[in-house]
Nucleic acid binder design. Structure first.
Lengths: 336, 336
DNA sequence: TTGTAGGCGTTATCAA
DNA sequence: TTGATAACGCCTACAA
């Protein structure tokens, strides 16, 4: 591979001039720059980005740390990060955590090791580096969705309390009075906020808050299946279910159908996320749209801001959500 | 950030000894190594991987280039790459191509620029670097699924001809004689092979090959919807559909249902991929499982082999597929 | 077993 | 407008 020295020799100039031709073309005489560019073309020279990084003390790369990619919410977030990163000439490194603190921390070492300029996190855990950060300065980390007890860290998330409260309001507007709730976690701040929102929604409607809440272990379709089975077996009375993800909702509909219950005639089901499959569900799923690609985009922007001004970027962005009415929810027939 | 020199000073040794303590611990006296490790701990030193890369002329990173992450087949592949990469201490950089040659080539420049050691590609395009490669030596690129007219390049894929042929055989074993086919592309080698397989399957069964093939533009659910509408409007007679992806199949079932056709009573539908949603379809989808995570894993292994021996790694891996019977296909009732 | 020193390929400062 | 040169932080012969 040709390096900058080879170009300098072939063009008959110094390496400084070659570098300038590449980075600050306006500072070099057109004739010189022409010679240099010809040499570059001829040897098909490409800047060695590793050397460049080392010298500039900047990697032009970020890490996006996520538990896995199976979930389309996660995939959307990564895609969002990539979009904004690419616009800005920044590379994205993938950090799968499997929900393990250790792996998350190991990914952060790439930031510590200067191989990346910052990290965007979507995970149940918080990087130890943040927790132990006593420097008084925020680290180049952006937290998304989850945001437990963090003092100094930019973050982007949804208004989870409102999301769930509006889900309830909508069902109440369809005359439902016995609303069950399937959560994806009992520990995540996001889930706990949504559960608070669920109760808030019921109270706003003047309904008694019964604890018809089933907490699953994650947001996958299997969780929806199991939780719905548990709900049915519990014998509790309900005419609608709020689910913390579309996958859970899809699992719920599936299980309800197997139990001989029709959606939405017998039970209304409402999801969250608005994944691509939601509108092709049977029936198409009513859901609250939470655009994960927006989360990724905003998180990446925050990281870019951070690079310009660490203090200014130390803030929280709350993204909008939107109810999308489809066919999995319906007016409660009187007498139920 | 503390660097190797700081550690050397604090431990009272040379930087060579520090480096050795990290890379070749057996070559250093335990007492010395203890001092060094204490210093490392104290200053929470982390190797600067950029400097290390530059010196070693090895990035310990690979790029995985994919059109986008919306598709779960793609996400699975990326996940597979990540798994094997992580086991081997290699970082994964994400390269989204949007199906554009230019972006794919730009991602390869990171390999050319030494920021990555190799690239794994799942895309409609082939990197120009391969096409223009006249060096006689294979490049550190592994192609997956797609493999058009490539002379010198390791690759991993499925036996697409057999995949489609078996799909047909299975439907024929259920007495179907009028089988339609929805493809995801008319240009991709993968799709063309599957179409060949479709015809082969019909011929094997002694059936006339009618050209009941609808070619969609991609493998998404929307394509299944549109193609199925076209199929219904065409007035052609068919009792089963082979779809080139589960998403297409899900879209087909959705559209069939809207047209008042029951699956599998009226029409059998068979997909490919076995995505996570397949078993929760309504009805659960019969499909040919193509594990994309395996593709990613094998591709990454091939790249590792390549690093050890470029020639030996210049080969093709063909992965197994498997028919999974669920409820979207059924015996054809006589008289249809 | 440890230390010295050169070099990986850039960028950026300073002087010419 | 250009060139010489000193870093960036690390690894690894080679010498001691």
């Amino acid at each position: 591979m040709a390096n900058i020295k080879d170009i300098a020799e072939l063009a008959g100039v110094s390496i400084a001039t070659v570098s300038r031709t590449l980075r600050e073309p306006h500072k070099v005489k057109p004739a010189t720059s022409k010679k240099v560019n010809e040499a570059i073309e001829k040897l098909s020279y490409k800047t060695n980005l590793v050397a460049s990084s080392l010298r500039k003390q900047k990697a032009d790369a970020v890490i996006v740390a996520v538990p896995d990619l199976h979930n389309s919410f996660v995939a959307g977030l990564v895609q969002g990060v990539e979009n904004v990163a690419r616009e800005n000439g920044i590379k994205v490194m993938l950090g799968v955590t499997e929900g393990k603190q250790e792996l998350l921390d190991r990914h952060y070492e790439m930031v510590a090791g200067k191989q990346a300029d910052g990290m965007i996190v979507l995970d149940v855990n918080t990087p130890s580096a943040i927790i132990n950060n006593t420097s008084g300065k925020p680290l180049p980390i952006v937290l998304t969705c989850e945001y437990e007890a963090i003092l100094l860290c930019p973050r982007v998330r949804f208004d989870n309390i409102e999301v769930a409260a509006e889900a309830v309001s909508y069902l109440v507007s369809l005359d439902h009075k016995n609303v069950a709730y399937i959560s994806g976690s009992r520990t995540l701040r996001m889930s706990r906020d949504r559960q608070s929102g669920f109760r808030l929604g019921l109270r706003r409607a003047g309904l008694t808050v019964n604890e018809n809440i089933i907490a699953g272990g994650d947001y996958r379709i299997e969780t929806g299946v199991e939780a719905t089975q548990a709900l049915i077996e519990s014998g509790e009375k309900f005419t609608a279910i709020v689910c913390e993800s579309d996958e859970i909702a899809l699992g719920a509909i599936h299980t309800l159908a197997e139990a001989g219950l029709q959606v939405p005639e017998d039970i209304s089901v409402l999801g969250m996320d608005n994944i691509r499959f939601a509108q092709y569900g049977n029936p198409p799923l009513t859901t609250i749209a939470l655009k994960s690609s927006q989360v990724g985009e905003q998180a990446m922007r925050l990281l870019l801001d951070y690079y310009l001004d660490a203090e200014a970027a130390n803030r929280e962005i709350i993204l909008p959500h939107q109810l999308i009415e489809r066919k999995s929810t319906a007016q409660l027939l009187s007498g139920k």
